[in-house]
Structure formats: structure tokens, C-alpha cells
Design a protein around this nucleic acid. Structure first.
Lengths: 209, 209
DNA sequence: CGATTGATGGACCGTTCGGTCAAGAACTGC
DNA sequence: GCAGTTCTTGACCGAACGGTCCATCAATCG
């Protein structure tokens, strides 16, 4: 089943893949990100990946499975990046602040207008696609857990009141962050969005920037 | 052009409409709300409206125009409802708290999981559909203005510090609310969502509930 | 009643959709 | 070089898509 491991052919080597699976997933992910799931056609996917229909179907299954693969790849990257950011910050409070401000961390604001693939997909598909809904639930639970860990660290460092519930605090921070992601997607002016992000971070987290 | 005005026929009356335009817009809006724009076919629209293709096209133009009509009808209703809620509250602070908590005001949580038509549409279409993006911008600017007015009133009533910027406060409240709407759409447990809403309201607004 | 008008519903259009399949290409082991 | 295996390509499929058109219907006014 898993053809990503190269040296597992029965006895005769066959024709090797001429494409890099990760590269294709990346291109496909961008396409879904820009146009959404339903508005992306197989022709779009062929164009951005450079693959023929047959290759796409042989490698990934149908459109929906390919979408889920691309989505999961995106989530793995995002969660890994978040974990690294949260863990590597010298002071947990700074990491929490950066977490809330993440939607405005891109200088130009282009990323803010593009939003988040998982968020966009959830809004488009959550009602009708249980697998996407499940992925969303898992993702935001995972994110909450990571942030909550960071809250605990901030408490140990004396920056967050010890009586605050870490999970509850994390959920509030996550909700605020996702609200900012969404406001960015509505086209809200980047400077105003940044000001709002600062305001939210200041109100939800102790200490002055 | 405008056939909604009944008494403007040249000289002979013709066959009158056999459907209620508002009723159709309502049904169509629900369909788009449940399935999204791209995933809704003309057959779906015919089914939920009970109209034939010809009637739909004659009355509303193509699918995209019909969608915009339904979306605007939704927005008019929503903004009207919000204005009324904000104005009718005896105390502005209570209205602001209710505004933030709106995503969990539905007892069962079904509304929370359905999300907001404008928010869903923005996430699905904002990148590719300038008209939807413009509608989103207008909507959230309008909402910000309404909430800011209410903040001013709360300041006059002594419930919100006088030195707070009403617009900035309104944007933060709106972002928090939309974050909650989104978290509801991810399927987050309704009780947890409610707790998060309470937590956000408590941190962003003065006074104890 | 008959002329006129807009509403109606479904047949019909070309296009594009997601998905399948078979034939050929590329590669290794014998 | 041949056999065996997988990958690649593009033709092909039926279905569904959005959209147009027209014969028919219902209502009014002269």
C-alpha cells in the first residue's frame, strides 16, 4: 500500500515515480487554499501538480482523498511549527502573545487575507463532510492542548495568575486568534487588524508589551 | 426592470407571480447556508424553492446573482436584528455582553454548529469573489459601527471606562464573537464553547455577570 | 371575448465535471 | 535482451453542470 518507501518492490524494480509526493501535495494544497474545495476542479489539480489524471488517481485516490491528504500535510506542518514556536520562546508569555498575534505576523497582510486552510475548509465543508469536521475538531483540540501547556509554563514563570484554568485560557486565546484570522479574511485593513490583535492580546494576557 | 412593484404594467395585466419572493429567498438562503455556494446546484435551488429554472432565472438572474440576493437579505435581517437588540437593552453593557455571547445563545447548539452564512461565505469565496468580499467588508464595518455606538452608550452609563476607544473596543468584541462562531463550527462541545464565551466576555468587558 | 402581457415549467444546449481504462514507457532482475 | 512490474499519458465515459429557449398558461383590459 505505502509506495512512499522506495525499496520494497517484490523482486523486479518497476518504473519509478517521476514526481515528488510532497511537492505535489504542496501545490495541491495551495490550489485548495486559494479556490476552496468545491471550486477546484481536477483540471486545476492537474495543472498545478503537473500530473496527469491517472497519476493523481493512482497515487492519491479520488479528489476527496487527495484533499484530505493535502489538508493533513498542512496541519502537520502547522502544528509542528506551532509546537516549535511555543517551546522555543525564552518566556512562555511572549509565546502566547505571539500566538494571538500570529494572524498579523506577516508584514504585507497577504497571509491575513488568505486566511487559514483549515479554517476555510471548516467553514466551507463542516456541515456536509464529517471527515473534515473530525479533522477540525482534532486540530483545535491539539492546538488547545499545546497552548494550555504553554500557559502552564507561563504560570510557573509567574507571568500568568496561578488560579487561571490553563485549558480554558487556551481556548479563549485560540478563539481570539481565530477571530482575528477571520477578520483578516474579510479584507479588514491590515493596520486596523494589527491594532485589534494588540488590543485583544493586551486584554487576554497580563503584562504590558 | 423592477417587477416587485406590482402596478406598473403598460396597459394589459399579465399573469401574476405565483410565488412569494421572500419565501424563495429564505429557502435559497438556507440551502446555501447548509451546503455552501459551489456545492449547491441549480437542481437544489429548484427543489427548495419549488420553482422551475425559467422562473428562477427570470426573477433573479443567474446563480451568482441569486446567491447575492439571498446573502443580502440575510444581512439585512441580521443587522436589523442586531440594531434592535443593541438599542432595546436597558443597559448597554448587557447588550455588549449578549453580543459576544450570541454564538451560544441558541440552547441546543445547532445554530452554533451551523455558523453564520456571511462568515461561511467569506471563508469559501473571499479570495475569488470580489462582490462577496465587498459585502463582507461592508457588513463587518456596519457591525463595528453599531457596536461602537453601543460602547459609547455604555460609557455614558458609566459601565465602560471613558478613555476606551469605542471603535477599537467594538472591533475586539466583534473579533472575539467571530472567533466563537468559528469554534462552534468546528464542532467544539457546546458547554465548552459556552464557557469560553463567558470567559471572553468577562475579560473584554468590565463588571461581573 | 379576444388581444396582450408576464409567469411558468420543462425540453434542450454545449460544456465541464469526476472518474476509468488501456496502451505504452521506464526501470530492474534474470 | 527478455520478462515482470509500476508509472504515465491521454482518450474516453456517463452524469451533472449552468444556462437558454419556447410553447403554454393565467390574468387583465378594451
Amino acid at each position: 500500500m505505502d509506495r512512499s518507501v522506495k525499496n520494497c518492490y517484490p523482486c523486479h524494480m518497476a518504473r519509478p515515480r517521476q514526481f515528488d509526493e510532497e511537492r505535489v501535495l504542496h501545490a495541491v494544497r495551495d490550489q485548495f487554499w486559494n479556490a476552496g474545495y468545491a471550486a477546484t476542479s481536477l483540471q486545476d489539480l492537474m495543472r498545478v501538480s503537473g500530473l496527469g489524471k491517472g497519476s493523481l488517481y493512482a497515487a492519491f485516490g479520488d479528489k476527496h482523498q487527495l484533499f484530505l491528504r493535502a489538508l493533513r500535510s498542512y496541519l502537520d506542518d502547522s502544528l509542528g511549527y506551532l509546537r516549535e514556536k511555543l517551546d522555543s520562546a525564552p518566556r512562555a508569555l511572549d509565546a502566547l502573545r505571539a500566538f494571538v498575534m500570529a494572524p498579523v505576523s506577516d508584514p504585507g497582510g497577504a497571509a491575513a487575507r488568505r486566511g487559514c486552510l483549515m479554517a476555510n475548509s471548516t467553514c466551507e465543508l463542516a456541515t456536509a463532510d464529517p471527515e473534515v469536521l473530525a479533522e477540525a475538531g482534532r486540530t483545535y483540540e491539539g492546538t488547545t492542548a499545546l497552548v494550555a501547556e504553554c500557559v502552564v509554563r507561563a504560570q510557573k514563570e509567574g507571568d500568568v495568575p496561578a488560579d487561571a484554568d490553563p485549558i480554558e485560557t487556551a481556548r479563549a486565546l485560540l478563539a481570539a486568534q481565530q477571530g482575528l484570522v477571520f477578520m483578516g479574511r474579510t479584507g479588514l485593513d491590515f493596520d486596523k487588524l494589527t491594532a485589534t490583535a494588540r488590543s485583544l492580546a493586551a486584554q487576554l494576557l497580563p503584562g504590558a508589551g
